Simulated scan of single mutants.
Amino acid sequence: LRVPTDLTLLPGHLYMMSEVLAKEEARRALETPSCFLKVSRLEAQLLLERYPECGNLLLRPSGDGADGVSVTTRQMHNGTHVVRHYKVKREGPKYVIDVEEPFSCTSLDAVVNYFVSHTKKALVPFLLDEDYEKVLGYVEADEENGESVWVAPSAPGPGPAPCTGGPKLLPPASVPVSSQDKLPLLPPLPPLPNQEENYVTPIGDAPAVDYENQDVASSSQPVILKPKKLPKPPAKLPKPPVGLKPGLADMTAELQKKLEKRRALEH
């Protein structure tokens, strides 16, 4: 961490950023990385050998009793495991890695980052994940000798175990259903009436009929309706001819002959 120098800042801002940087470095100096374990030199080698999948770099307290720390690594080289130990000295608030070219770090996290970055990530910080047990067990006292025994029962499956002593229940037999016993199908329901067809159009909303060449009356003037002429009653229908009696028919025929003779003489 450092204060950026490529920014144009006021002296007050630079001073505030320097104070924040100092506090952050002090906080990180007090923190310990996850790969730091309080173990001895031999215990560190055994952990790296027993759990190679957890990492190959481990930090531990220095063996000389000083405030420094030691770094233990384990790698494979030509089929042989090679273990190396590195010393990190504590000089004031900083940690100095004791190598050919000593490197100063502000915190233990920076020490770990140095080993990881300078080995092209071949070294992986050791992280032992054994905080939780995978098998349920309990301590049981032996009645014969009184010693305590650790018992890990087999995990039962989900749900209560079925009873094995009782008789087994047979599955219900399927009864064939004949075609006569089947219930008749119900007729389909009539379709619901269309809601749009159920509306009643009021008389006042009836659409007006448009005619060509028709004068449009103004809405402000009242419209006077002319009385319609009533149709004339139909004329009286002629009475149907009534059939003549036999005696009257002979008299009418004689009169008709006489009338024709008179007209002939007049002409």
Rank of each mutant, 00 (worst) to 15 (best):
G204K: 08
D181K: 10
E260P: 00
P193V: 03
D210S: 09
K226M: 04
L225H: 12
V216N: 09
A208P: 07
L248C: 06
A217K: 00
D215S: 06
P193E: 13
P222G: 03
L189C: 00
K226W: 01
T201F: 00
V200R: 12
K239H: 04
M251K: 12
Q195N: 09
N213R: 09
T252N: 08
P188S: 04
T201Q: 04
E197K: 12
E260V: 03
I224G: 02
S179T: 07
V242Y: 05
A206L: 12
N213C: 09
L183P: 15
K229G: 15
P202K: 06
A208Y: 06
P227W: 03
P187K: 14
P207H: 02
S179C: 02
D181C: 01
Q180H: 12
P188H: 01
V209C: 03
E212D: 12
E196F: 09
P188N: 07
T201W: 06
L189D: 12
D250S: 01
A249I: 05
P191I: 00
D205F: 11
P202M: 12
L255F: 04
E260Q: 12
Q195P: 11
P190T: 02
K226Y: 07
D250W: 01
K232V: 03
L259K: 06
P238F: 13
K245L: 13
T201M: 05
Q221D: 03
A253S: 11
D205C: 13
P241Y: 11
P234V: 03
T252Q: 09
P191A: 14
P234I: 00
N194E: 11
V200T: 15
V216W: 02
K232T: 05
Y199C: 03
L186Q: 01
L230Q: 04
P233F: 15
P234M: 04
A208I: 13
Q214W: 13
D250I: 13
K182Y: 05
I203W: 06
K257M: 01
L225P: 06
L183H: 00
K232S: 14
D181Q: 08
D210V: 11
P233M: 14
P190W: 00
P246I: 02
P231F: 07
D205I: 04
P227Q: 08
L189W: 00
E196Q: 14
D215H: 12
E212V: 10
K226L: 10
A217Q: 03
L192M: 06
P191W: 04
P231V: 08
D215Y: 01
K239Q: 09
A217V: 08
P184I: 00
L189K: 09
K257I: 05
D181G: 02
T201Y: 11
Q221G: 00
Q195S: 08
P184Y: 01
V216C: 02
L183R: 09
V216H: 04
K182Q: 11
L186C: 01
Q180D: 06
S219I: 02
K236H: 11
L259V: 12
L259W: 00
P191F: 07
V216M: 09
P190R: 05
K236W: 01
L237T: 14
Y211I: 10
G243E: 15
A235F: 15
L230H: 04
P191R: 03
K245H: 02
S179E: 09
T201A: 10
K236N: 10
N198V: 02
K232C: 01
E197G: 04
P233V: 15
P222W: 05
K229E: 12
K245P: 15
P184L: 10
Q195H: 10
M251H: 02
V200L: 11
